[in-house]
């Protein structure tokens, strides 16, 4: 008896459509977000994450509307990320029906925003997204730095120290994406996952690089993650959520069925 590890399908949404690229290029259309979320709910997904990659202002209204519709039809937790910069952005998403928001770039430019957000809305709804890239040379002990703007801009900030700081400021969960692995289908970066899981006492979601079901299991058994997030392997029908859960359960991981 105990807490189940979670499988979280991620929807990258641009202008109201689910898309998925390889390292942020080569975008393929993967459908209507509400329909996609409903499908995952029916398959037994434990949560859904909605990342709004729309840059424009007009796109925000579309996003809020999509979140509202999703929250009316999908009765599992919903996290919304992308463009969360102000307290009002958080309020808008929570009012639209999101359960948590994911803060990324804004936390890097203004760490106190995380503290302010947690004080106002509670740590339970504040996820800090960390996009990490390996900066150590082969053979050296692992070292990872934070990158912003979809992995394009280096910040010089150490990822493990950053995770500790975010946790201390009131983040309720960490969404850790390896920018080296994102879209590569070669598995999570286990090194950075384990380093951050061991450094903080809040749940960590591993993300970036899932290509098969063993990768998902490895994120939990080797990386120590509390939840695993993936997009492509589910969107294009390679595997269902149920297949993934059965596979992980067979490896002794506690799952919800």
């Amino acid at each position: 008896m105990g807490l189940a590890k979670r499988i979280i399908p991620c929807l990258d949404v641009d202008q109201g459509r689910v898309v998925k690229g390889v390292q942020f290029v080569d975008i393929r259309d993967a459908g209507d977000p509400v329909e996609v979320a409903k499908k995952y709910d029916e398959q037994g997904a434990d949560e859904v994450t909605f990342l709004d990659i729309t840059a424009s202002h007009e796109g925000r209204d579309t996003t809020i509307h999509t979140v509202e519709k999703m929250a009316s039809e999908v009765f599992i937790p919903l996290t919304v990320g992308g463009g969360i910069r102000k307290v009002e952005d958080i309020r808008d998403m929570l009012n639209a029906g999101a359960d948590k928001v994911s803060i990324n770039t804004a936390a890097v430019f203004n760490p106190d925003f995380v503290g302010e957000a947690a004080a106002r809305f509670g740590s339970q709804c504040i996820v800090v997204a960390i996009d990490a890239k390996c900066v150590s040379a082969p053979g050296e002990p692992g070292r990872w730095e934070i990158f912003t703007h979809g992995g394009r801009k280096p910040t010089g900030i150490d990822a493990v120290e950053w995770a500790k700081k975010m946790s201390a400021l009131g983040a309720g969960e960490i969404l850790l994406t390896s920018m080296d692995r994102d879209g590569m289908k070669s598995g999570f970066d286990i090194g950075v996952t384990r380093a951050i899981v061991d450094a903080v006492n809040i749940p960590v979601i591993a993300s970036g690089g899932v290509g098969n079901l063993q990768h998902l299991a490895d994120g939990v058994t080797l990386g120590g993650a509390d939840a695993v997030l993936a997009a492509s392997i589910f969107h294009f029908g390679e595997y269902s959520i149920q297949q993934a859960k059965t596979f992980m359960s067979d490896q002794g991981i506690e799952m919800r069925f």
Binding site: L3, G172, N201, I202
Partner: peptide
């Protein structure tokens, strides 16, 4: 508390996710 354990295993706080109810 900040040091919550299930046997040897340290548990994260918040308690977040799907758990069983007796």
């Amino acid at each position: 508390g900040d040091s919550l354990y299930d046997g040897e295993q340290r548990l994260k706080v918040p308690h977040m996710g799907w758990n069983q109810v007796k």
